[in-house]
Each structure stands twice: as structure tokens, then as C-alpha cells.
Design a protein around this nucleic acid. Structure first.
Lengths: 234, 234
DNA sequence: ACATTTGTTATGTAGTACATAAATACTAAA
DNA sequence: TTTAGTATTTATGTACTACATAACAAATGT
């Protein structure tokens, strides 16, 4: 307990290497000079000299920013500031096999929170065409073998995120999916809520936002039940 | 329109540099050999030789993985696989000044979705002590000047995330905050829902989960109204 | 048995050299 | 004068060497 707090409070010390420092300095520099995407940056040699470091170290730092999509470089033209892909970096790290169990659990819950919070956006953005497509997915699902269950789960819930028209949200969901599945496979036999996909479609078609929230909650109820049981163990 | 689709479909080509390739190769390697956190990696020279590249390029790739927290290195001891901080990378990129407007809007909505979806977790995890603390925040807020409004907003909603006991979710919320605020300041005068923080506390204390969902929706109603108006412009 | 010194090793940093692609200047032909 | 083609310049990309530094291990001396 005490050690846990300790490590939380003053853990890092971050035996900073030059590349770490330079990375921070560069980030500060970009901010301070308020560069905008497309603006040209000084060339490597100038930066290295200004920072008083070797080009080598500078490039290690630049390599990081380049990975994040913050800068782009072309021979001769030099470097320009770019718009980073905010989810790109996230994506690289989100491997269920590496993440510790607590965080896996956190992500599982995060996805539940998202699903439960979708309703308002859905009811603002949904169109008849969307609902039709969703209905088709649910119909097709009924005919399918149980081994395709996960695929249809993905298709259905994925479509829901689609309807929000929020690309970032959609991508985020896709990224969270493997983790979600992984946690599920770690668990017991498949569980189903009392409200199925087709029910949800019908609510979306004829019901109110509040109806949908209740329906989604019932659909995910098994997961929440599991959380309630886990509660004591934490 | 056509160009937009084009760039979405076949944009990248990603004129891969060696460091890019090596980064991918290393990631594959770690996965294939199913290294676990704490496992030792081969030394730089061995990796560089095996890949047929200079130590320089290898280090640029390693620098990226190091930034993501995937590996840690100590002199003499060599490199070990570590548990990446899944939000760390995200954090570095989440600067409202760099992100394009569409994504800003997406993130704004994402946070709304989170707030709306919190209820279920809250009602599983909340304790009397939590509610007491939340009430104190709301009380203190009433006495404060309007210029402290944002601070109390943060304190209150932050505490809500706290109650979920989900550290990842909490950190995520903290990271999203600046973006959320930024979008707000871009807008018109401050807006308030019909349900205020103290109302929410009372619901959390005596009301049902469903009451709370309705309350939170009313609290955020002004934001949703704005989204509804925006709808047509999109 | 213990403390100190000495060596070994893997990463960290610096510097040089050259390859490559892209922009610019220049040259020669129409 | 215009234009096609060539040469030059330049900034990034890659490779290699050398040495510094920290951490560990072994050896040495008391």
C-alpha cells in the first residue's frame, strides 16, 4: 500500500537521455514559435547546433516526432510541421498481450461507458438509411451460425458508431475492440443480454432516446453484472 | 469531394524510411517471439547486424519504442521489454492548437459520450464518502466567483470519473479536458443546463441510475442543442 | 570475510563520410 | 525566345568509427 503510493508519487526520475530531453525541447520550441501545420522547420544541422548536440541524437528525437506524425520530411525540401494522427500512436501500443490486467479491465469498462453514452449522438444523427442498414445486419445475424457471433457483434456495434458520424469515435472503437474481445475470451461462456440486436433496431426505429438507453443497458447487463461481482475483489 | 475520397482511399504510400521499416520489423519480432514484460532483448549490435542495417538506424527505431514505453534500456544490462503506457503516446499529440477542427469537434463529442455513459459505473462503484466529497465540491462552487467556473467544472466532473475507480478512464478524461475547453472558448458565452452540479449530487445520493442519466442529460443539454444545430452544416 | 580496485560490456553521444532525391541553375537545340 | 535536357546544389538518409559512461563481475589486497 505504502509502496504503491510511493511509486505513484515519485516514481519516474526518468533517467533522461539526451534524446528524451531534445524531444521535449523540440516540442516546446514548436509550441513557443506557434508553428502551424505546413510551416517549414530549420534544417537538422541548424537544430543540432542550436541545441549543442550531435545530429545523431537530434535524429533520434526527430524520429519520434515523425512517428507521431507531428513532422514530415522530404529530401532537400526539409522538414515541415504536420497534423499528427491523434489515434495513430495509441494504436501502436494497444496490444492486449502487453497490457497489464488492470488496464485491460479499465479498457473493457471504457468501452461499456462509450456504448452506454452513444444514445444521445445516435438520436441526433441517425437517418432512415442508417436504420435500414442496421436492420439488415441484425437480420443476417439471425441466420448465422453461433461461431460467427463475434463477427456480427462487431458489425452491429460498429455500425452504431458509424451512425454517430464521428470518425474519431469510430476509429477509437475499432482500436478498443481487440482488447474487449480478449477480456471476453478470458472469461466464461458467452453471455447474452435479454435485449438483442433486433430489439435495439426496433427501439431505434420507433422508440425514444430513453427507451434506447434502457434497451442498451439491458443488452449489456451481463457485463455489468460481472463488474458488480468483481467489485468486492478490488 | 472526389479528391477527398481519393486521399482517404489511397493516400499514404508512406515513402518508408529504414527507421519506419525497422520499427515495424521490431514490433513483429517482439510479437512473434512472444516476449513478456521484463524479458531481455538482444543487444543493439546483434539486432542491427541481424537486420542488416547500421546501429544508427536501429537506434532511431528503438528510440520510438522507448518513447512509447515499450522498451526500457539500461547501460550494460541491455534492453528489456516493458509495459507501455497506453495513454502516454496519446498525450503527446493531443494539442488543441495542432488538431484540425473536425477532430476537435469529434473529441468534444467523445467527451459528451463518456459523461453520458458514466452512470452505470458510478452506481456500481460509488460510496458514501465519494458522494460526500462530491457534495463538498458542489457546495464550495456555489460560493465562488464566476471566473472560477471552469475550475469547479473540472473539479466536479473530474471527481465523477474518480468515483468510477477506473484510472485509465480518469486519465483519459484529464487529457481530453483541454480540447474540450478549447472548443468551448471558441464558442459563444457560457451556457448552463437546467440541472446543476448540486442537483446531480442529490440525485446520486437519493435517486436511481435512471434519474441520474436524465439529470446528466439535462445538465449537458446546451451542448447537445448546439450539436443538433450543427447537424445541418455537416 | 569484506572493501577496494580493476576490467568488461552494452548503451549513450559525437563526428565524419557518402548516398539519394529534389529543387535550381545552366546549357544546348528547336 | 522557348524548351528539353543536363549539371549542380542541398537537405535528408544511411553507414561507420571512436569514445564516454554506467553497471556489473571478477580479482585483488587487507
Amino acid at each position: 500500500m505504502a509502496t504503491n503510493d510511493l511509486s505513484k508519487d515519485l516514481a519516474p526520475i526518468s533517467s533522461n537521455t539526451m534524446a528524451d530531453i531534445v524531444e521535449v525541447r523540440l516540442r516546446e520550441y514548436l509550441k513557443k514559435k506557434s508553428f502551424r501545420p505546413g510551416d517549414a522547420l530549420p534544417k537538422e544541422l541548424e537544430l543540432a547546433e542550436a541545441l549543442g548536440i550531435s545530429r545523431n541524437v537530434l535524429r533520434e528525437a526527430l524520429s519520434r516526432l515523425r512517428m507521431l506524425g507531428m513532422i514530415e520530411t522530404k529530401k532537400k525540401r526539409g522538414m515541415i510541421l504536420a497534423r499528427p494522427d491523434i489515434l495513430g500512436a495509441f494504436e501502436r501500443v494497444l496490444d492486449p498481450l502487453i497490457i497489464d490486467n488492470n488496464t485491460l479491465q479499465d479498457i473493457f469498462e471504457l468501452r461499456l461507458v462509450l456504448e452506454m453514452g452513444l444514445a444521445d449522438l445516435l438520436y441526433i444523427r441517425k437517418t432512415d438509411k442508417d436504420i435500414e442498414e442496421l436492420e439488415n445486419i441484425a437480420k443476417k445475424e439471425a441466420k448465422l451460425d453461433d461461431s460467427f457471433r463475434i463477427k456480427s457483434e462487431i458489425a452491429f456495434h460498429g455500425k452504431l458508431y458509424d451512425i454517430t458520424g464521428n470518425d474519431t469515435l469510430k476509429r477509437f472503437q475499432i482500436m478498443l475492440m481487440p482488447t474487449f474481445e480478449y477480456v471476453l475470451t478470458q472469461e466464461q461462456k458467452p453471455i447474452r443480454g435479454k435485449v438483442n440486436h433486433m430489439d435495439l433496431v426496433q427501439i431505434l426505429k420507433n422508440g425514444t432516446k430513453e427507451d434506447f438507453k434502457i434497451g442498451m443497458q439491458a443488452h449489456l447487463q451481463p457485463h455489468f453484472d460481472r463488474l458488480s461481482k468483481l467489485k468486492t475483489n478490488k
